[in-house]
Design a protein around this nucleic acid. Structure first.
Lengths: 340, 340
DNA sequence: TTGTAAGCGTTATCAC
DNA sequence: GTGATAACGCTTACAA
């Protein structure tokens, strides 16, 4: 119940002013060593804890940043967050996590409460339903750095850290082509998101560049889930022609596809070669390990944090900084797509 | 660059006092509807954002809670955090995440900066290296609720939300016995942690109760990793007698064990039945799905949050509340341990 | 119903 | 080197 000690408690005990105590605590240059030591000693004795809240109010800097993601418990997002936290905690920042649940209304609310909480910066990966971006543009008015990672929006004055999804889609498809696939289908994610658009475009361009036909019925929009993959296979196998290669924008769907194909005694990779996306941990553990694209979430997190720190170092004097970092995707070829 | 509007900006514009503005904004009962509407309108016009920092300083309540976990990017921890966040955000709380990296020194530091930040409560799962708990006891002095989840310490006045690891260990082992296993080994986690102690005890008691011998050389301490499981198999298969059942305190080690056994053409589950722990997503995706114990992290998170909310409702008038919630583990029997 | 003024715990600016 | 004081933005007795 005892309230924690303040600088006034220290100043009273020592018969000095609170200002002096503050100076002693903050390594102010103009202070005698004696008083400083005295203050430090009594601070310890009284179990004094700096009230960062008051400090924040005074200085306008909370040393908190906000992160908004659709969900925290996915390997990708939690790994990015880990990267951000590790980098920023070295610099004294705390990280506040919010989930949007893929709901733009909730995202808007979270964004606003973060602004109310006076965070020093915001990291975000937008929700699938985020079309109207006025809430983010409004947030930009507060003049705090906004850094998008992975799922970005083009907003002036904001920075982005993404991977080259186009290239990833292109390389994944090209890899399948090199394995001899001629009829490659694409299990696409939610095309409202740029990342899935880009993977899709990469796929299409890789086909075109290799003079392979792009068939509309080979583009299957799916949920990122095992069931999504199962359904896709069922849909494809009710068509007159079946694919001999699958580029899935989701590892979970790739897994579902594998399971469904095995059920039908279709050989992977020889009848159908498969590559997924995200390099989910499970892909490498399978008896038939699944090829995938790694998005290097740890690096994405660390770099996002660094971009933020750069903002803060620029002292933020009204200059708009924009930094667009594009990371290289890393392709992992495993059994599911490696033909002899 | 423009600083955000304060209640003073509103009060000036309307020629009323800041107090009235504050009242209007906070649904104070004694205020005329007219002024209230006027205030709300100008607030919107000036794009006023409540500065929760100032409010927090005044009220002594930040509406922030801290969470300390070893790592955020594990399925278990991120799922618990998700549960906590979902429950608390409904009540206006924000969640600050810290990682201890299994290092008690870092844990202590994180705990202290959370206290400095005046969080309203702390959720934590202690690190493996946390033997000395003085930092947590000291934190208790601040009289804020401390809720341990999963990895707890017995500290007066704190609450805990855990699963019954003893029962889980007992049931897992009993299940193997029922499958006909006579020589069951245990891949144990770091026994400095209570959870692993309890799983181990459950294992031992299940053997005893079924009149099976407890062999010291069948207790293999492992790292929670695939390699850990591989190493354990190698160690076991250099013994004069080999096990016919494995209870692993880690799914990753269980997976490594499976892989290594398959290499040696040993049949799972008939030669050796295996059950892991944590119900990691991958366990069910395998071609040979791995039996496991689910710790219901989502429920653990939600309940932890509810325990915290109870504290806050008790108005916290010097009463010490202790709540010890023990959740029931959920056993998932899959192919790796199901004999015909 | 509204205004005045004090206070939450710090720190920065002036004086001395 | 140190002290007094104002200020950060908000809430809340107490008055009016």
């Amino acid at each position: 119940m005892k309230k924690s000690a303040t600088i006034y408690d220290i100043s009273e005990k020592l018969n000095i002013s609170a200002a002096t105590v503050s100076r002693a605590l903050n390594n102010h240059p103009k202070i005698s060593i004696k008083t400083k030591e005295l203050v430090l000693a009594t601070a310890k004795e009284l179990n004094y804890k700096q009230n960062t809240l008051a400090q924040a109010l005074k200085s306008g800097k909370t040393n908190n940043v906000g992160i908004i993601v659709p969900y925290i418990n996915s390997n990708f997002f939690s790994s990015v967050i880990r990267g951000i936290e590790e980098e920023l905690s070295l610099h004294g920042y705390h990280v506040i996590i919010c989930q949007s649940h893929e709901d733009v209304d909730l995202e808007r609310k979270q964004l606003n409460t973060l602004l109310n909480a006076q965070v020093d910066g915001i990291f975000m990966s937008v929700s699938k339903t985020t079309q109207d971006i006025s809430h983010i543009e409004a947030a930009k008015e507060s003049n705090i750095p906004i850094i998008f990672f992975d799922r970005k929006k083009d907003i002036k004055g904001t920075s982005t850290v993404t991977i080259d999804d186009y290239k990833a889609g292109f390389e994944a498809t090209e890899h399948l082509i090199k394995q001899g696939c001629k009829k490659i289908c694409h299990l696409s994610g939610d095309l409202r998101l740029e990342i899935y658009q880009n993977r899709y475009k990469g796929y299409v361009d890789a086909l075109r560049e290799n003079n392979l036909r792009v068939r509309k019925d080979f583009i299957i929009p799916i949920e990122s889930s095992i069931q999504g993959g199962v359904d896709a296979i069922n849909a494809l196998w009710s068509l007159p022609i079946q694919p001999d290669g699958i580029f899935s924008a989701s590892d979970y769907a790739a897994l579902g596809a594998c399971q469904q194909l095995k059920k039908q005694k279709i050989n992977i990779p020889n009848d159908v070669a498969i590559i997924g996306f995200s390099n989910e941990p499970f892909t490498q553990y399978m008896e038939l390990p699944i090829s995938s694209i790694d998005q290097t979430p740890d690096i994405m997190g660390k770099i996002s944090a660094q971009v933020f720190l750069e903002y803060m170092n620029e002292n933020f004097s009204g200059i708009t900084i924009e930094k667009k970092v594009v990371l290289k995707p890393k392709i992992y070829i495993r059994k599911s797509s490696k033909r002899k």
